[in-house]
Computed example of a mutant assay.
Amino acid sequence: MEKEILPEALHKAIEHISKLPGYGEKSAQKFVENLLKLPKGESIDTIRALLDMLNKINPCKECGLLTEHEICNICSDENRDKSIICVVEESFDAFAIEKTGKFKGVYHVLHGRLSPLEGITEKDLNIPSLVKRAEKATEIIIATNPTIEGEATSTYIYNLLKNKDIEISRIAYGLPFGASLENADTFTLSKALEGKRRI
C-alpha cells in the first residue's frame, strides 16, 4: 500500500540510496527530503557534483587513495618517505591524518576492514598489494579504526608481516575506542600518531 502512495520516482531514489553502506530506508528518506528542500538549482548542482565525482575519482594505482589522477599527489611527491607506510581503512582516514601535518610517509588504503558478520574477508580488502609494498618498507604503521573490526584487521595484517624485517607499529589510542579517524580532531590525531607503539 505504501508503495502505491509513494511516487515511483521517490521510491526508486530511496531504494537506491538505501543500498549504500550505512544507509537504511529512514536515512535514505531523510537524504531525499533534504535534497528536495533545496532550491532546484542547488539540488541539481549537488547531483552534478556527484556525477562529476563518479566520472573523475578513482583509486591511486599505488596506494588506493581516492584521486583524480592515476597516481595520487602523495605517492608522486618526491619529498615523501616511501619506506614508511601508514595503513588505513578508507581514504578519508588518510585525509584526516594529512590535516595533522605530522606524517611524512605514504599511505595504503584497505578499502574496508575485516568484518565476518558483514561477510567482509581478507579477499575483499586491498591486502595483497600491501604485502608487496612492504618488501621495500622499513616501517608499517597500522592506523585502522579503534573498533573490534579495526583491531581484527590490525592483528591480521600484523600476522602477515611479522616475520619480515620491518618495524610494525599500531597508532596509539589518543582516539577513544569505537571512534573513527575521519571524525577525530587534528590534535587527537596528532597525539595518536606521536604515541604509536610497536606491535
Results as ranks from 00 to 15, higher is better:
Leu36Gly: 01
Lys37Trp: 00
Lys37Gln: 03
Pro39His: 02
Pro39Gln: 03
Lys40Gln: 09
Glu42Lys: 12
Asp45Ile: 08
Asp45Thr: 07
Thr46Phe: 15
Ile47Phe: 13
Ile47Met: 15
Ile47Asp: 13
Ala49Tyr: 05
Ala49Ser: 12
Ala49Ile: 05
Leu50Ile: 14
Leu51Glu: 12
Asp52Leu: 14
Leu54Met: 14
Asn55Met: 11
Lys56Pro: 14
Asn58Ser: 14
Asn58Asp: 15
Pro59Leu: 07
Cys60Gln: 09
Cys60Phe: 13
Lys61Val: 15
Glu62Phe: 14
Cys63Leu: 13
Gly64Pro: 09
Gly64Leu: 09
Gly64Gln: 11
Leu65Lys: 14
Leu65Ala: 07
Thr67Asp: 00
Glu68Leu: 06
Glu68Tyr: 11
Glu68Cys: 06
His69Leu: 08
Glu70Phe: 09
Ile71Asn: 01
Cys72Tyr: 04
Asn73Val: 07
Asn73Cys: 00
Cys75Arg: 05
Ser76Lys: 08
Ser76Arg: 05
Asp77Cys: 01
Glu78Arg: 04
Glu78His: 01
Asn79Pro: 00
Asn79Arg: 04
Asn79Met: 00
Arg80Thr: 02
Asp81Leu: 04
Ile84Lys: 14
Ile84Leu: 15
Ile84Cys: 09
Ile85Cys: 04
Cys86Met: 13
Val87Pro: 08
Val88Ala: 03
Val88Phe: 03
Val88Gly: 00
Glu89Tyr: 10
Ser91Gly: 12
Ala94Gln: 10
Phe95Asp: 10
Ala96Asp: 14
Ala96Phe: 08
Ala96His: 09
Ala96Tyr: 08
Glu98Arg: 04
Glu98Phe: 11
Thr100Met: 07
Gly101Val: 00
Gly101Asn: 10
Gly101Gln: 12
Lys102His: 09
Lys102Gly: 00
Phe103Lys: 09
Phe103Ile: 03
Lys104Ser: 12
Gly105Arg: 01
Gly105Ile: 03
Gly105Tyr: 03
Val106Leu: 01
His108Lys: 02
Val109Ser: 01
His111Pro: 00
Gly112Cys: 10
Arg113His: 05
Leu114Glu: 05
Leu114Gly: 07
Ser115Phe: 10
Pro116Phe: 10
Leu117Thr: 12
Leu117Trp: 06
Glu118Gln: 12
Glu118Arg: 13
Thr121Lys: 10
Lys123Glu: 15
Asp124Asn: 13
Asp124Cys: 02
Leu125Ala: 12
Leu125Gln: 10
Leu125Trp: 11
Ser129Gln: 12
Ser129Tyr: 13
Ser129Glu: 11
Ser129Cys: 07
Leu130His: 08
Leu130Gln: 04
Val131Phe: 00
Val131Cys: 03
Val131Ile: 10
Val131Met: 06
Lys132Gly: 00
Lys132Asn: 08
Arg133Leu: 05
Ala134Val: 03
Ala134Tyr: 00
Ala134Ile: 01
Glu135Asn: 09
Lys136His: 00
Lys136Tyr: 00
Ala137His: 02
Ala137Trp: 01
Thr138Ala: 01
Thr138Gln: 06
Glu139Gln: 03
Glu139Cys: 03
